[in-house]
Design a protein around this nucleic acid. Structure first.
Lengths: 234, 234
DNA sequence: GTCTGTCTAGACATTTGTGTCCAGAGCCGG
DNA sequence: CCGGCTCTGGACACAAATGTCTAGACAGAC
């Protein structure tokens, strides 16, 4: 029973690592999934090993087989976020669109669709960034990428560079502030307000059919119709 | 030495309580001030009694003379916030103004002036609200009051009720999102953008002199010219 | 069937934070 | 000057969380 032969570090870091079948109660991914849920619902500083273990019905020791430390787990959570939300929003902003209002609707499609963009996760990461410099750096980089993509979007539709930058800021920070604030408006009222938002953000009238197209899309997602409060405490 | 005669609860709760002069190292207000600083810079969950005591150079026991528990201190912090930011923003929104753009500038004056509105504190309370139901309730009430005041402002300047509500939301949530996001724009660029913001928020051109009046006001405050990063971690 | 590697449980040490108790220092009024 | 009130320091108990160590259960390979 040589201790070096079962060195857990090697196995943890091996991407091809395949666990034995019947022996396992939880996998590395189970730890990550549970931690992600706690991160979103309670914040990064409440991702505690004991809490996760209790919730999954295993002992804390199991954790240290899969992860070297709590920090390792948190790094995994940040990696997941980095590979998701920002890419989705940039893609939607870059998507071709006949008019600026249609283009803005594309951006709305992003935040309306939980499969494309997890607003609760995005918020949790922002919250976390206040407490961790590495997270903060990753977040700042993401904000720049998103805002740049939105500015390019306005520029493609004929807005001068400086005005495009301002409108990108209004659109992006309004979106941010809306998700940040307490209670979201009920889905129906929120949808009804879309044409007005388009007028304010673009400064022009939406074209016929554009709002209807977006509404039809948005109604597919519970997030936009009856979203549960993403900031409920405790 | 009857214990009931020196019952600390009576003294702590007595608003007319006057400490002896030369005997005191810290006052109740010192604890609150230090806690407020930590709340703003690191978040409510890092307001630890030991940390505060170390920083003031006294023992933890002193704390329990002035406060019954850590919760008592946090309640004091919340009370302070409740009596400040919201009142200031509502007052600025209600202030008479010749045009809508001048009225919006009044609101900008609020967030530009640290004496009227502490954005960092506001943010810290929002952060805290995610972790404490009572804070969350106080925050929700404040958001409603602020948004209502902004809607009334647009209505007074002739916007129909529904459009006034939408524009109030864009103005308020953009403000929120801007403070929420990572790095604020440098002061000069931010000031230069004011007229464009006015056009987007109001949908009309600012009148001559309005922007200049606001700029002259804003330049008095370091917060708007070279604000330090309010969300630096740790 | 035994051995080997994978994974888990339970006990231990350590750190950090809260709250309580008590002795006592310092100031004040009588 | 002295007794009582105000406030502080230091010791204690306790709880929550992290990380380490060791024994051992279990499946698969041979």
């Amino acid at each position: 029973m040589n201790r070096d032969l079962r060195n857990p570090v090697l196995h943890r870091d091996d991407p091809k690592r395949e666990p034995l079948s019947g022996n396992i109660k939880v996998t590395r991914q189970d730890w990550i999934d549970t931690a992600m849920d706690v991160l979103i619902r309670h914040g990064a500083d409440r991702v505690k090993i004991l809490t996760l273990a209790d919730r999954m019905g295993v002992s804390r020791s199991s954790f240290y087989w899969y992860f070297g430390s709590r920090q390792d787990l948190l790094d995994a959570l940040l990696s997941y976020w980095e590979d998701r939300n920002t890419a989705a929003m940039v893609a939607q902003a870059d998507a071709p669109a006949p008019t600026i209002t249609a283009a803005i609707c594309n951006v709305f499609r992003c935040t309306a669709n939980p499969a494309l963009f997890d607003t609760a996760l995005d918020f949790a990461v922002r919250d976390w960034a206040r407490r961790d410099a590495r997270v903060r750096a990753a977040l700042d980089a993401s904000d720049v990428m998103r805002e740049t993509a939105l500015r390019r979007m306005f520029e493609r539709h004929g807005y001068p560079e400086y005005e495009a930058e301002t409108r990108a800021k209004v659109l992006y920070y309004m979106q941010l502030g809306y998700d940040f604030a307490g209670k979201p408006e009920p889905g129906a009222r929120r949808l009804a307000r879309v044409p007005e938002y388009l007028r304010v953000f673009a400064g022009v009238e939406p074209q016929p059919g554009e709002v209807e197209d977006f509404n039809a899309y948005a109604r597919q997602f519970a997030a936009f119709s009856e979203k549960e409060d993403p900031h409920a405490p405790s």
